[in-house]
Simulated assay, not measured.
Amino acid sequence: MKKIVFLLIILTFIISCKTESKPEVEENSQIVKIEETPVVALAEFDTKASEYVNKEVEVKGIVDHVCKHGGKKILLVTDGGDVHINSDERFDEALMGSEIAVKGIVVEERIDESYCLKMDEDNIKSHSEGVSNKEQFEAKKKHVQQYRDQMKANNVDHISLYSLKYVSHIEAK
Rank of each mutant, 00 (worst) to 15 (best):
M1I: 08
K2N: 11
I4W: 03
L8K: 02
L8P: 04
I10K: 01
I10D: 02
L11A: 13
T12H: 09
I14A: 08
C17D: 08
C17E: 10
P23T: 11
V25D: 04
V25E: 07
E26K: 13
E27Q: 12
I31F: 10
V32E: 06
V32W: 04
I34D: 03
E35P: 00
V40P: 00
L42H: 03
A43N: 07
A43C: 06
F45W: 05
D46A: 13
T47E: 15
T47R: 14
A49R: 04
S50Y: 13
N54V: 00
K55L: 08
E58R: 09
E58I: 12
V59C: 04
V59H: 05
V59W: 02
V59N: 04
V63H: 00
H69D: 15
G70Y: 13
K72I: 06
K72V: 07
D79G: 14
D79L: 14
D79C: 10
D79H: 14
D79Q: 15
G80D: 09
V83D: 02
H84M: 12
H84P: 00
H84T: 08
H84Q: 10
I85K: 01
R90N: 11
F91H: 04
D92Q: 01
E93K: 11
G97T: 05
E99N: 13
I100A: 03
A101Y: 07
V102Q: 06
K103R: 08
V106S: 01
V107P: 03
E109I: 08
E109L: 09
R110H: 05
I111D: 01
I111A: 01
D112Q: 03
S114N: 11
Y115G: 08
C116S: 07
L117W: 09
M119K: 13
D120M: 14
E121I: 10
E121Y: 15
D122W: 08
S128F: 07
S132Q: 03
S132E: 05
K134M: 09
K134L: 11
Q136D: 15
F137L: 05
A139W: 15
A139P: 10
A139D: 15
K140H: 15
K141C: 05
K141M: 10
K142Q: 13
V144C: 02
Q145C: 05
Q146D: 13
Y147R: 01
D149L: 07
Q150L: 09
M151F: 04
M151D: 07
N154Y: 08
V156S: 11
D157I: 06
L161T: 06
L161E: 09
S163P: 03
L164H: 00
K165D: 14
K165G: 09
Y166T: 04
V167W: 08
V167I: 13
S168D: 07
S168E: 07
H169I: 02
I170F: 07
I170N: 10
E171Y: 10
K173F: 15
